[in-house]
């Protein structure tokens, strides 16, 4: 999405929310930390959601758990937390049920600032429902959702398990952890300061980025991967599609590719000051030890820095593995370890 369109989207949402104003002191630091002094207020509502419907939930401060289940209803349980009962009453939870869409919004008073109230949601939706969940400060946990799924947080972790049509999972400050997810098109995963950990993902294409965190992809099946980090390590493990293209790039982190020896590939590897090692016998056309890159050996430099270009097997997939100051490793086994959450 380009900058202009992104801003338009933001303003459009702002206009939408202006009709149902939401306002809060949303910093996690502002939410009272002394549990003993917290006042709580519970909220529950159940609304029907027909087949093909979707849930759109936007929150300001607080955690959100959404789970797919049986039935054709959206069950919303929420707990408001704040310093005083008076403050709790200032924050409203609006549930709007349309023909095929349920919207849930937390609404803070416009006339008063610094309302230190957070709202935690626990929601159950029909498993096939589409879900869009956004929060500014809080963790997101989503599980067993087969409809299209978008999960965005600004400050908080995003955790997705078993998603049939995942579109994106992103946060600015926090980790993104996704297991057992599929996407009909490309899936985007992003964090600025946290790690991105993905396992058992199937999609046409995967975009995964972090600035200071690592990016780990385990048992990932896709025909196109674009994985980047500035200072974190990148690990990729999964079958390579013939004709697929996989770009793994870090500045100061290591880049490690775990592959089986069933699919051939053409590979271009580069590191400015690190080492290049490969368990697989790569027929080198540039760099490497003579004409044939030897496993585990440091290839001869084709100039300043290190580069290796070559083919394994009959080729097929295209790989580009680069790091500025880290190492590049091609490991001939599939990563099977499960990412711990």
């Amino acid at each position: 999405m380009n900058s202009s369109h992104r801003l338009v989207g933001i303003l459009a949402l702002a206009a939408l929310l202006a009709a149902a104003p939401a306002r809060a002191s949303w910093s996690a630091a502002d939410v009272p930390g002394d549990q003993q002094q917290l006042q709580t207020e519970k909220f529950s509502k159940t609304v029907p959601l027909p087949k093909g419907g979707s849930l759109d939930l936007s929150n300001i401060s607080g955690d959100i758990v959404v789970t797919g289940g049986a039935g054709d209803q959206v069950v919303i349980d929420a707990v408001k937390r704040g310093k005083t009962a008076e403050e709790l009453k200032l924050v409203q939870i609006d549930v709007t049920a349309g023909a095929s869409r349920v919207e849930v919004r937390t609404r803070y008073p416009q006339e008063r600032r610094n309302v230190n109230v957070s709202v935690d949601f626990t929601v159950t939706v029909p498993r096939a429902a589409g879900v869009i969940v956004r929060t500014v400060s809080g963790d997101l946990k989503l599980a067993t959702i087969d409809g299209t799924l978008t999960a965005d947080s600004v400050s908080g972790d995003v955790d997705v398990t078993s998603a049939g049509q995942l579109e994106s999972a992103k946060t600015v400050s926090g980790n993104v952890t996704v297991a057992m997810a599929a996407g009909e098109a490309d899936i985007t995963f992003a964090s600025v300061s946290g790690d991105v950990k993905l396992s058992q993902i199937k999609a046409r294409g995967i975009e995964a980025n972090s600035v200071s965190g690592g990016v780990t992809l385990v048992e990932v099946t896709c025909s196109r991967a674009n994985v980047k980090s500035v200072s974190g390590d990148i690990v990729f493990g999964g079958p390579l599609a013939k004709g697929g293209r996989y770009m793994l790039q870090s500045h100061s982190g290591d880049v490690t590719l775990h592959v089986n020896d069933k699919t051939g590939f053409e590979v271009n590897v580069g590191t400015f000051s690190g080492d290049i090692t490969s368990d697989l016998q790569i027929v080198s056309t540039f760099g490497g030890e003579g004409e044939r890159g030897q496993p585990g050996r440091r290839p001869k430099s084709g100039g300043p820095g290190q580069r290796l270009q070559g083919t394994f097997g009959e080729g097929g997939a295209l790989l580009e593995l680069t790091t500025f100051s880290g190492d590049v490793k091609i490991v001939s086994k599939t990563v099977t370890k499960v990412i711990k959450k």
Binding site: V154, T171, V192, N209
Partner: peptide, 9 residues
């Protein structure tokens, strides 16, 4: 939260 569409793109 909606602007995340461009994060680290």
């Amino acid at each position: 939260a909606k602007i995340l569409g461009g994060l680290s793109k």
